[in-house]
Design a protein around this nucleic acid. Sequence first.
DNA 1: CATTGTGAAGCGTTTCACAGCC
DNA 2: GGCTGTGAAACGCTTCACAATG
Lengths: 232, 232
Amino acid sequence: MPVERVRRRIPEATVARLPVYLRILSEQADEEVENISSEGLAELAGVNAAKVRKDLSYLGSYGTRGVGYEVAFLVYQIRRELGLNHDWAVVIVGAGNLGQALAGYGGFGERGFPVAGVVDIDTTKVGSVIGGVRVRHLDDLAQIVQSRQVSIGVVATPPSAAQDAADRLVRAGVTSILNFAPVVLAVPHGISVRKVDLAVELQILSYYEQRRAGGGGLRSLGSDNSGRGASA
Amino acid sequence: MPVERVRRRIPEATVARLPVYLRILSEQADEEVENISSEGLAELAGVNAAKVRKDLSYLGSYGTRGVGYEVAFLVYQIRRELGLNHDWAVVIVGAGNLGQALAGYGGFGERGFPVAGVVDIDTTKVGSVIGGVRVRHLDDLAQIVQSRQVSIGVVATPPSAAQDAADRLVRAGVTSILNFAPVVLAVPHGISVRKVDLAVELQILSYYEQRRAGGGGLRSLGSDNSGRGASA
DNA sequence: CATTGTGAAGCGTTTCACAGCC
DNA sequence: GGCTGTGAAACGCTTCACAATG
C-alpha cells in the first residue's frame, strides 16, 4: 500500500489567515530574513502568537524549538497547502467600473491568478482592451473557461445580472466564484463562493462609528475592533 | 432619572449579517411585501431561520408570533441600529485603478456613503474628475475631513503607501478605515479597521479548489463552502 | 396553530499554560 | 534558555427544541 499522506483538515479560520502569513513571510524572505518566531510573525500579522503556532501546526511540525520557523520553508509549505504551486486562471464577468479595475489591477496575475478573460454582455464594451486583456462577449464565456482551464470566476456585474453570471460560470465549468455583487448567489452544492460587499463593510463600520458616538444608548468606549480588521 | 435605553451589545457576527438582511428587506419593501417570516428571510439571506431569529432578537422583540416581522418596521430598526439614519461621508485615498473604480461606483453614495473627496499624492492625477469628484492632493486630506465631517476613510493606495495613508487619515480625525491594500495597518486603539484583500479571497478559493482536485492527500469531497459565501 | 423568542446544547475558534525539544 | 507544539479551558457563535403567544 502506498504511503499516501492523508491531509489534515484545516479549520476555515486558519485557511483564511494563511494567505496573510504567506504575504508577510514572502516580504521577510525578500528582506533576507531567514528565521522568524511565532511571536515575530504574530506581531507582523496583527494576531497573537499562540494562534500563529496553532495555525502553523495544522501544516505539520515545521518549526524548530528554541529557534523559530525557517522563512523560506514556511513559504513553500503554505504555498503548497493553499494550492499556489501553479497558477489559477480567472475570468471576470462584467467590464464595468469594478471589472475594469480588477482586470487592470496587476496584482492578480502577479499573485498567481492570471486574468484569462473579461466578458460583458454589452456589445459596445466588447473589443476594448483593459489591463492588457480584450473584452469579449458574455457568450464566449464557456469557450474561454474551457480553453484556458479556468476554475475561478469573478462576478463584477450589477446586482440584477449577478445570478445569471453565476449560472453561466457554473455551466461553463467554473467551480469557485468570487462575488462582488450585493446579491446572495444560489449555486449548486460543491461550488465555493466567497463574497466581497463594499456596502456591507461600510455599514459595519457605520455601526461601530455610531456606537462610538453614543448613538442611542450609553456604553463604554474602548476597543471597537471589528473582527476582520487589525488595530494595533 | 431619565429612561436611558441601554443598548444591548450585538455580537460581531450578527452585526456583519444585519446589512445583508437590510438589503433583502429593502428589496422586499420595494416589492410591497409587508410581512416576512424568519424562514422567508433566512431563505433569501442564505442562512438558517434560527440564526435570523436570534440575530433579530438582539434588536428587540420586533416580530409577531404566528405572523412574522413587518418588513418596513424591521428596515427602520436595522437602519437605526447600524447608524444609517444619516449619511456617512467617506474620503478615498488613492486615485489609482481601484480608487477610481470606487469613486465611480455609484453604489456608495446611494447607500448612504457619499464620497466627500478623493486624494492622491501624484500631482498629475490631481484635478482630474472621477465619479463626479475632482481628485485633490493628499495634503488636502485634513481639510476635506474636517470641512466635510468625514469619519470613514478608504485606503486604496499601493501597499507601500498604505500605512502612511492610514496615519494621515487618523491624524485628520477619521475613526474608521476600510483598507484595500494588502498590508496589516497599525492604528491607534479605538480606530476601527476593516480589510478587503482580493488576493486573500482568491487564495482561499484556491485552497478549496486544490482540495477538491485532491491535491496532495486523499479526502472525501462534499461541501467545501468557505464561510463567508453562500451555496444553495 | 404558525411563528417568534430564547434557554440550553453543540461546535468551532481562541487563548492559556506548560511539557517537550533543540 | 528560548521557543515550539498541543492538551485543555475559555469563549463566542450556531443550532436545537420548545414554551410563549398573537
